[in-house]
Nucleic acid binder design. Sequence first.
DNA 1: TCTGTCACG
DNA 2: ACGTACGTGACAGAA
Length: 740
Amino acid sequence: ASDNIPGIPGMGEKTAKKLIKQYGSLENILDHAHEFKGKQQENLIQYREQALLSKQLATINVAVPIDHILEHYELKDINRDAIQTLFEELEFRQLTKRVLGDSNEAEAPVKKVAPAAPDLFSALSENATDTELTEEQAAAIQYHTISGTEHDYQLIQDAAAIDQVLNLFMQENVFCFDTETTGLDPLTDRVIGLALSAQKGKGYYVPIQSDQDLIKFKPLFEQSNVKIAQNLKFDLQMLRQYGIEVKPPYFDTMLAHYLLEPDKRHGMDELSKQYLQYEPVSIEALIGKKGKGQLTMDQVDVQVLKDYAAEDADVTYQLYEVLKPMIENDQANAVFQTVELPLVPVLADMEHEGIKVDASFLQAYSVELNQEVKAIEQRIYEQAGEVFNIASPLQLGKILFEKLQLDEKAKKTKTGQYQTGEDVLIKLSSKHSIVQDILDFRGLQKLKSTYVDALPELIHPLTHRVHTTFNQAVAATGRLSSTNPNLQNIPIRTARGREVRKAFIARDAEHVILSADYSQIELRVIASMSEDPGMMEAFNQGIDIHTATAAKVFGVPVESVTKEQRYKAKSVNFGLIYGQGAFGLAENLGISRTEAKQIIDQYFEQFPGIRQYMDKAIEGARSNGFVSTLLGRKRYLRDIHSANATVRSFAERNAINAPIQGTAADMIKLAMINIHQQIKSQQLKSKLILQVHDELLLDVHVSELEQVKQLVLTEMQNALPLKVPVVAEYGVGQNWLEAH
DNA sequence: TCTGTCACG
DNA sequence: ACGTACGTGACAGAA
C-alpha cells in the first residue's frame, strides 16, 4: 500500500488521480498534454504516443487477421516467415500468437472486451486525426472579451437613479446579483458595490457609500423572485451583515454546474469560457497578483470597477440561461432543488455561528508537546550520529537507508526519494529503535503544527470563535469539505490527538455540545441498494454488523465469533465499499493473499447480492457513462472504458463507491436542512455548528437538550428512508471529546 | 507549485 | 506483468 503507484507513468498516484478528476478522463488529459510544463509534459506526450500505439495493437488483437492487414497496406508479398522472424526478434510473443496464430491453438484468441470495436482501418485513421485536431483546436480557441463584445454596463450613483434601478428589478421575476467587497471575510469586510443583471449584455453597478445605500435593496432580496448568483453562500453572508435576508427561490450557477459535472471545476471564469466562449475581466487585472501590493476593491477606480462588476453579474446571468435548461432536463435536478439549494442558507448559518475553541488549553498543550518533541529530537540525533532535518523525507531517507542501512531493497518514490511513509516505517520498527522515535516525532510534530498551534490563530477577533468554510462544490461524490481550518479532520484515533477535541467547547455554561452520528451508514446504504438478504437481515435484527458478517464468512454461530474474526470481517466490510481486492485486504490485515482471497470469496458467497450490486454498478457505468445516488446525483466515469488497466480499475472502484458515499452524503444534507428548518420554526436557541460526513455537532441550550436531541435523531433517521433501518446515536458533553 | 506525509469519515 | 481502497485538506520541504 505504500508503493507510489502511478497509473500515469512519471507521476505519483495522488497527482494522477487529481488530474483524472480534473480532466474527467485519461484521454482528456492526454489531449491537453501540451498545456503541461516541463517533465510532466514530456511524460504525458510520450505516454500518449505509447497509448495510441497500444490502442492500435489492441485493435489488431480484437478483430483483424493478418491477411487483411497485409492486403490493406498492399503488403501481400511480405511473407509470414519474415514477420515471424521479426516478431521473435522483437520478443512480441503474445502478438505473434494472436496475429500469426499459434500452432498449438486452433484459433487465434479473440478479445471480447471492446464492444462494437471499430475495424482496424477506421480506428487507425480516427485516432490519428482525433488527437491532432483537439490539440490544434485547444491552442486556437480565442475567447470573446469585454472589448469586442456589445454591452451596456451602467454606473448608478445618485439617489434617484438608485431608486429607478431598484424599481426596475422589483418588477423582474428573475434577476442576478453579485456583491463587491473589501475582502473575503463576511464578518469584518464590507460591501462596496452591488451589481445587478436581468438581461444578457446589460448590467448595473451601484457603488455602496453608506449602509443605507445597500439596505434600500432589502425588499428586492426579501420578495419571492428568483435570485441568481455564483457562489450564493458568500453573498448571503455579506448581505446578512446589513440585516438583509436573501429569501428563496435561489439559483446558484456554481452548484448547478457542480451537479452537472461534479468532477470538474466550477469557477465563474471557467464556466464562462466553456459555455459562453467569453473570458471575463480577471480580478488580477483590477487588484494585481496575490501577495503584497495587492489592492482591495475599494481602492479601484469606480469606472473600472463598474465594468468588472456589471460584467460579473451579466456573465452569471448568461450562465443561468445556459445552465437552467441543462439542469432541468437532468436527473440531478431533484438533488439541486431539494438538497443543494436549500442547504446554502444552512451552511451560511453554520459558518456564521462558528465554534468556541479554548485557546489557553491548546497553548498549554503546545508547551507540553514541544518538550516531548525536543526530547525525541535529541534521541534521534544521538542514534543517527548527526543532526539533520527529521521533517525532510529526503534527508530522513538517506539516514535510514544509506547511513543505517535498515533495508537493502528500500523502495523509492517517483521522484527517486526513499519512501518513509508510516507503513514503511512500521515494518522497519523492529530493526532499530530510531524508527519508533521517528514515528513519534512525526505524530507529535503534525499534531502540533496542524492543530494545536494553528487553531488558536484562527479564532476570530470579533466573535472569539472559529469559523470554518464549508465547500459545497469540491467533493465529486457529493460530500462537503471544510477549509481554513479544516474541522472535518480533527484527530480522534490516538490518545494524544484526541486531546485536541477537548478544546472545542460549548458556547457558555448554559450550553452543551451535542454530537449525533449515523451508525454504519455506508453499509446500510449498500445493504439497501443491493437488497442483499443476508445483510438486510443483519440490520433488521439489529445485530452488530461486523459480528454478523464474521459469523457468515467464517461459518460459525453469532455468539461464538471471536475478536479476531470480527476484526477481519470489519476490514472486509470497509474494504468492500471501496472495491478493495485480495491484495489490499491481505496488506491491511497482515495475512497471506491466499487467506485474504478465501475470505473474500466466502464473503461474496454469503452475500451474493453485494457482488451483483457491484457488477451492476460497473455495468451501469459502462452503458450510461455515469453512476447515480438514490436521489439521482450523478458522477461521470469516462475512464470506465480506458485501455489502461490501472486507470480503468480506478473508474470501476469509483463506480462501486460513488453511489454509496454519495447517497450517505445526500442523506445527511437532507437531515441538516430539516433540522435547521425545525430549529427556526420552533425558535430554538440551539445551533447546528459542524458536519463531519456522518456526524452533526450542535451547540445546545441546556433547557432545550431533550427536545433538540429527539429532533436531531428523528430528522437524521428519517431524512432518506432506506430498505433497512437507519440508526443515529448521540452524545452530550461540555466539549467535543465528551460528546462524541 | 509540486511532492510526501498524515489527519479525518 | 501490472498494480492493487474511496473521499477530502494542511503542513513542511524541495524545486
